[in-house]
Amino acid sequence: MLFAVKMDVHLPPDMDSDVKADILAREKAYSQEVQTSGEWPHIWRCVGQYSNLSIFDVDSNQRLHDILSQLPLFPYMHIDVTPLATHPSDIALLERNP
């Protein structure tokens, strides 16, 4: 199942710098682990924002929830999830199924 996920991060401005550095390091390590697994095949930065747009390829809604809720930055995020389906005008689909 494919999902487009927009994650907006809102860290408290008065967050301790050591706490912030720790959370960001854990976030990077965890997100790269999930990317390596193949469940998080794409991540893009949204220009001018502290946010990203990602594509997840997971087996279930629950699996996506588990991944997202384990992100160290999860308590500081607003997350929008959009389930994706193949579009009938996708030329890649036409090439696979002539």
Rank of each mutant, 00 (worst) to 15 (best):
I55A: 02
A25P: 04
V5H: 00
V81A: 00
D66K: 03
S69P: 02
A25W: 09
I23A: 04
P12G: 01
V81K: 02
A92M: 05
Q49M: 12
Q49H: 10
E39M: 11
Y50V: 08
S69Q: 14
R26E: 14
P41C: 04
G38T: 07
Y50Q: 05
S54W: 08
V81I: 13
G38V: 05
N52H: 09
A92Y: 05
V9D: 04
K20A: 10
I55M: 06
A25F: 10
I67A: 00
D14T: 10
A29I: 07
R45Y: 14
G48L: 12
M15T: 09
V9M: 06
Q35T: 15
H10A: 13
G48C: 10
P75L: 06
L73G: 02
I91V: 13
N61G: 00
S51H: 10
Y50F: 14
M15P: 00
T36Q: 11
L11S: 07
A4W: 13
Q49W: 08
R45N: 15
S51G: 05
V34Q: 11
P83I: 10
A92T: 12
K20V: 06
H65L: 09
H42I: 13
S89V: 11
D90P: 01
F74N: 02
L64E: 01
F74L: 03
S89E: 15
I43Y: 09
C46H: 08
R63P: 00
A85L: 12
D59T: 09
V58A: 01
L53K: 01
P75Q: 12
V81C: 01
Q35W: 12
W44G: 10
D66G: 04
S31W: 10
L93M: 09
P13W: 10
D22A: 14
